[in-house]
Design a protein around this nucleic acid. Sequence first.
DNA 1: TTCATTTCTTAAACCAGCTTAATTTTTTAT
DNA 2: ATAAAAAATTAAGCTGGTTTAAGAAATGAA
Lengths: 190, 190
Amino acid sequence: MYPNFISHIRKYVKLDDHSVARLIQYISPLKLKRKEFLLKEGQICQSIYFVEKGCLRMFFIDDKLNEQITQFALENWWMADHFSFLDNKPSPYLIQTIEKSEILAINKTLFEEMLRELPQMERYFRIIMQRAVAASQLRNKFTYEMSKEEFYQHFNTSFPEFVQRVPQYMIASYLGLTPQYVSELRKKKL
Amino acid sequence: MYPNFISHIRKYVKLDDHSVARLIQYISPLKLKRKEFLLKEGQICQSIYFVEKGCLRMFFIDDKLNEQITQFALENWWMADHFSFLDNKPSPYLIQTIEKSEILAINKTLFEEMLRELPQMERYFRIIMQRAVAASQLRNKFTYEMSKEEFYQHFNTSFPEFVQRVPQYMIASYLGLTPQYVSELRKKKL
DNA sequence: TTCATTTCTTAAACCAGCTTAATTTTTTAT
DNA sequence: ATAAAAAATTAAGCTGGTTTAAGAAATGAA
């Protein structure tokens, strides 16, 4: 049951079988088809989502009505609008499956209860969040030091699995490029 | 003793006086003059730093030998290269005081011990890190939806204290602009 | 107060990456 | 299978922001 989820947690903290049984009480498994939504703009992000299987994107609609993708999540990644989740603010984002997916959701109230009951989970999320900060520091550094062309090439070589699974226009959006420019860059490389 | 530090923690978790006394055993206070370094490129980021008073910047040297500033921290902010701190990797960054500052440092080993002894601190850092993720999601969204001119104007109106305290060329660097362009934008606004 | 250093400004030429618009290819649903 | 919709390509013209190079103004140390 949820093998990715459990082994991901056990990579960072010790958790005996009894605690695992208790932990599972707090989560809601969701089976979703392609293009289904977990969050829509204007709603409060009530849950954080773990991708047991499949792939999610988070995006917002900009002033020219483009879908601007700010994050992807595939297996073993968490997804949430943390600002909305922490402070109960309406979110500007939409969260949507890209493929058929199995998602584990924990809502805010149960999340707090779970952390009180299982201190190892407080530790797990401290580590996960600190790693998320580290990852965003790194990505941020790349945006300072690379041109958009370099950023695109870097992404391609660093995450080939992604490039296989996700349409090109979505990668363009995530990297802050126009689909036309990405097309030009691909042509250039051949 | 360290009033900003203690009240910042008590904003997020309950901490009795005995725990505060224990907590203080783990931290090293540093009094630093203007332009002193806490970290230099190639070193491992051994500590995380809390700004009790003063102001820090984190930057790296890019391929054109520019100092690229990626983060500032003033009172009540934490500063670290988390990737280096978590995984003991040499850091590409330098961390330096902009003004005379009072910094509280916790090194990696003591950090782990402290979290074991004081579970409230594990909770505090989970919250702090989750808020840091929220902040970086927000900043990231701005870079997708704003032009560089808008980003500059937004920063000015959102953080006027910063603009007072920090030289203009450092703000330009942080925002990914040339000092020349910032100068042009200021002229335009008058 | 003065000098040396740091910071800020001005202006012209330049270009990486965007916009617009039309066409082709691929994918999805029935 | 087939039609419709979604995704990718091509190409020309354009612009927001950089680069380069000097000079002016502000600041800190002695």
